[in-house]
Amino acid sequence: MLKNTIIGLDKILFDDIPKGSVILVTGAEGTLKSGLVFSMMANFLSANDEHGLYVTLEQNLESHLRNMKSLGIKEEPNLHIFDYRDMRQEWMDSELDLIKTTGEVIDSFKEKYGNLTLFALDSLNALYSISDPGDMRKKIYNFFTHLRDEELTSFLIMESAQSRMSGQFTQLHQVEHFLADGTIELGMIEGKGGVKRYIQILKMRATKHAMEKHQLTIGDSGPNILGPIY
């Protein structure tokens, strides 16, 4: 369903991503994680009568849209953006169970728009940093189960810098990689021609895909994937 949403995506994805897959999109800051996911969702929804939900914990709605516009990505009416700014300003973080709340937000949008088929969370790191760490592994397992039960093709964005941290985050990240159906890594490589962004599919269950790193650039209308970067 998403194979043709980005120019060049078919260079790395030979089959389509099965509906209801939960995919991690990892990478350091500035590697276009949000732009790639938002662009895939917006392009898919502009051609289909379905709805998507993009939940952002890192930015508010206005700044997220501003960033997307600067990348040439158009706003799509069926792609709903929900930010936690108001909720977090009005309630203490301790009063909010954001994993449970995110599940309820999904259910509310699903109730309103029956054909909600795409979901993105930006980002898992932010969700962890403001969530009660107790029973986190169980909560994450239940969250993944919820996404699958709702048959949502989901993108969970994860800043990879934190995966180098020791302790709980590292363990949690292992759980997510294990639970996810796919992992897309974005990064930067410094070579003779300067710094280049790349995209690499590390894992995609039930889907044939390339293993090589491919160059990721920004075109007039969002991210484009070029040939192998080697």
Binding site: F82, M87, E90, W91, T101, T102, E104, D107, F109, K112
Partner: peptide
Amino acid sequence: MCGYDLIKEIFSSCDVFLSQGTVYPVLYT
């Protein structure tokens, strides 16, 4: 009212707690 006021208002008048995850999406839509 803001989302917080609404949740408190409905709780105090109906004794029903509408969770944040069910109220804010309604306000958004």
